[in-house]
């Protein structure tokens, strides 16, 4: 039987943008999207041939031998994860409850901060054989109570995170602009932008030789005069428009970069 979660994971992998590398390691999560634990599970799930996968978050790390979408052994872990008592050097099995749960606890500890997650994937002959039971990604997902197919809504996360930094907001959802603002007049101004200008703006931007697919944020200072500045963003087919005070530019920009870039 084909599992929907597996399909979702494969589609996400196929549709992902070109990889970003930092210090020789591939960035698999910016700390928010995809969620760090999902990113780690996806990486294990995509590893068929025997590899040593080292997951790094800041100075913390865990190195596993992985094959056939299973964790065969834990070969190294940083000292700050010692409190989870990870079974370094041992062959892994979901039947060894204590060790299994310790691996889950150490992974949870590894991603405790919303910092970027990096992975190094190298060939390795270190511990664990393919015949070992290991820990499958599905068992690990169950232990960590992760739903791999849970839809990720980055634009909604962005809009919610920016609450407090805008005075009016419109969010394109299911073919409609949904908005809210304290001042109805400001919202009406923003609706004019959405209805009369947004598609034309996107068209002109595309014709200038720029991508309409890659996530983008635009912040136009004083575009509504005294009523404020206008921000517009798109990602994965979703849009949001804000009216904001110019003093909040840096905050909105920082939140956007945290969510949409690696």
């Amino acid at each position: 039987m084909i599992d929907e979660g597996t399909i979702a994971r494969k589609l996400a992998t196929l549709g992902s943008e070109k990889p970003v590398f930092r210090d020789g390691a591939r960035v698999i999560s910016n700390g928010i999207l995809p969620s760090p634990i999902n990113a780690i599970l996806d990486e294990i799930d995509n590893t068929i041939l025997r590899r040593k996968l080292t997951f790094r978050v800041g100075a913390s790390f865990m190195s596993f031998i992985v094959a056939g979408r299973r964790l065969l052994s834990l070969v190294a872990a940083s000292d700050d994860l010692a409190e989870a008592n990870p079974p370094v050097g041992a062959a892994l099995s979901h039947e060894e409850t204590e060790a299994f749960e310790a691996v889950g606890a150490a992974l949870t500890l590894l991603v405790r901060e919303d910092h970027p997650v990096l992975v190094e994937s190298t060939p390795s002959d270190e511990g664990g054989t393919r015949s070992d039971i290991g820990i499958s990604v599905d068992r690990l997902a169950d232990l960590l109570e992760v739903v791999p197919s849970a839809p990720i809504k980055p634009m909604q996360i962005f809009v919610e995170a920016c609450e407090g930094f805008y005075t009016a907001c419109l969010f394109w959802s299911d073919g409609l602009w949904v908005g809210h603002a304290e001042d109805d007049n400001v919202l009406a101004e923003l609706r004019k932008v959405a209805d009369d200008q947004w598609e034309r703006f996107r068209g002109a931007y595309g014709k200038s030789g720029q991508s309409l697919d890659a996530p983008r944020l635009f912040m136009l200072e004083r575009a509504l005069g005294e009523a404020g500045s206008v921000a517009g963003t798109w990602a994965q087919g979703e849009f949001a428009l804000f009216v904001y005070d110019p003093s909040n530019l840096a905050d909105i920009h920082a939140i956007w970069r945290k969510i949409f870039t690696t």
Partner: peptide, 17 residues
Amino acid sequence: PSLGNSAAESAVVSGQD
């Protein structure tokens, strides 16, 4: 103006690049 009713004093464009 491309967006809004006043010529923006400046614009920021942000992306992965």
